Computed example of a mutant assay.
Amino acid sequence: MRILTLSGSLRARSTNGALLHAAGSLATAEGTAVTTADIGGLPHFNPDLDGEGAVPPAPVAALRKSVAEADAVLIVSPEYAHGVPGVLKNALDWLVSSGEFIDRRVAVITASPNPAGGDYANTQLRETLRMMTGTVIDEACLMVGTVGARLDRDTGEITDPDLTTQLKAALKALTAP
């Protein structure tokens, strides 16, 4: 099993990045290969750059290749102003018409300092991914509230055993046959 991870945050010390790293470590410990796609260098979505007969920009081609090679995709993202961060939406826009997400197993984890755990972004991402004909595994989707209190701010390690249990269950659901 190969999981591709995407982070909706570009911050170096992002709690969502730490959560993504923790999930990746848990998956690797279970024998799953995990890679992370860098979406920060993608150009702004412009269909004119990718029309019929055009060669997509190199970062776009690399992202598409990574998604195509994965068995599943795990997205970990914050919520910005009750929505999906622009960098993540941009990456998904580049994948909409290319077909890599068709029937791809996908999980969404949103994390927020707010107790609701990024529920607006989680709902929006799941709807977008379903429209892209990804197979959203509902049991693998989480909303992690008060995330800062559940991670060590210096190391990014999970300090809440319940969160570790939830991540393991989500990964098991995502990787189930």
Results as ranks from 00 to 15, higher is better:
I39A: 03
G117T: 08
G86I: 07
V60C: 08
V106E: 05
E69V: 02
T146W: 01
E157D: 15
G156P: 04
T135S: 15
A116P: 01
S98R: 02
L49M: 15
N114C: 09
E139T: 07
R130H: 10
T135N: 15
T133E: 15
V73Q: 06
G83R: 05
Q124D: 13
L167Y: 04
L142H: 00
R104Y: 07
T133G: 00
D160Y: 11
D50Y: 10
V108H: 04
P161L: 11
T123K: 12
M131V: 04
A62N: 05
A61L: 06
A68E: 09
T128Q: 13
S66K: 08
I75P: 09
G117S: 06
L163P: 01
P113A: 12
I137Y: 08
L42N: 10
T123W: 10
F45T: 07
R126I: 04
I102A: 03
S77I: 09
L167T: 07
Q166T: 05
T159G: 08
G86A: 14
C141F: 11
P56R: 04
V60G: 06
L49F: 15
P85T: 11
A54H: 13
R150T: 06
D138H: 15
M132C: 14
T128F: 08
S97H: 06
A111R: 10
E52Y: 11
A37D: 12
L167S: 06
A140G: 02
L125H: 04
P113L: 12
A107S: 01
L95I: 09
F45V: 12
V84A: 03
A54G: 11
S112P: 07
V108L: 10
T110I: 05
D162L: 07
L74R: 06
R126P: 13
A121G: 02
Q124K: 10
R64F: 00
E139C: 03
G41V: 03
L151S: 11
D154P: 04
A37R: 11
A140N: 01
D93Y: 11
I39C: 01
V73M: 09
E139F: 13
G134E: 14
P56L: 07
A116T: 03
D152S: 01
S66N: 08
M131Q: 09
I75G: 01
D71P: 02
I102P: 01
P113M: 14
F45K: 11
P47Y: 15
L125T: 00
D162Q: 05
V84C: 05
V106Y: 06
L151C: 11
V73G: 07
G117W: 13
P43G: 12
G156H: 05
W94D: 11
N46S: 14
L163F: 15
D71K: 02
K65W: 06
G118N: 00
